[in-house]
């Protein structure tokens, strides 16, 4: 069972998580037929910007986040934005819609796409609840081991209670699978790998 403090923390996070939506006029653009390279680039940029803005709004509401050193706040967000967005894409995937409508326009190689789709598939098989998604997003953002963090202990203090709540959620919703919590945490290094690939890909685009 959750303690009253844990329950209210969970309710609070779920409330801000449910408000985490990108504006409809941005997501609608994906459905428009637009196949020029420049058009695709603009849509992708606008979506990415919008996702980051929404992510920052969610993060600002995480209990204690605004008490962290300002530069640490930025380092946490910079380090986690790509992972949080990939993570979010496993739920409802506007990114995969974008890619499936415009298969070749980004010249993204199969070595990058295939592991990503396998990842999304394996997440689907975990049958995660909304609470688990929300908590894992918060846990990804509040990772104390990101680059350039000065006060790691303070970040740890914010992340730990969320891990406790996530563990309880896993026991509650997946009583038949005692490994569920470990399985979820095991996805996080995979997300980091995508983050590295993403950075490499951006760099190669820039060079080209």
């Amino acid at each position: 069972e959750f303690t009253p403090e844990q329950q209210s923390l969970l309710d609070y996070i779920m409330d801000s998580y449910s408000k985490q939506q990108i504006p409809q006029e941005v997501s609608k653009k994906l459905l428009h037929e637009e196949f020029s390279a420049e058009g695709n680039f603009l849509i992708l940029t606008e979506m990415a910007t919008s996702h980051v803005q929404v992510l920052v709004e969610f993060t600002k509401k995480l209990p204690g986040f605004q008490t962290l050193d300002h530069e640490d706040q930025i380092a946490l967000l910079k380090g986690s934005a790509v992972e949080a967005i990939y993570w979010k894409a496993t739920i409802r995937s506007p990114w995969s819609l974008l890619f499936s409508n415009r298969p070749n326009s980004f010249s993204i190689s199969d070595e990058f796409i295939t592991p990503m789709f396998n990842f999304y598939k394996s997440i689907g098989e975990l049958k995660m609840t909304q609470e688990e998604y929300a908590l894992l997003t918060a846990i990804v953002i509040l990772s104390p081991d990101r680059q350039y963090i000065k006060d790691r202990e303070s970040v740890e203090r914010l992340q730990e209670p969320l891990l406790d709540i996530l563990q309880k959620c896993c026991k509650l919703h997946h009583p038949d699978n005692p490994q569920h919590f470990a399985c979820l945490l095991g996805r996080l290094p995979e997300l980091r790998t995508f983050n590295h690939h993403h950075a490499e890909m951006l760099m190669s685009w820039r060079v080209n």
Binding site: T45, E46, T49, V52, Q53, V56, E57, I74, L77, A81
Partner: peptide, 22 residues
């Protein structure tokens, strides 16, 4: 779109300060 050429850090800094629509 004014944010098209803005880097990730700039978007984050702006959003953190609540300056969405500038």
């Amino acid at each position: 779109n004014s944010s098209t050429n803005m880097g990730l850090e700039a978007i984050i800094r702006k959003a953190l300060m609540g300056k969405y629509d500038e």
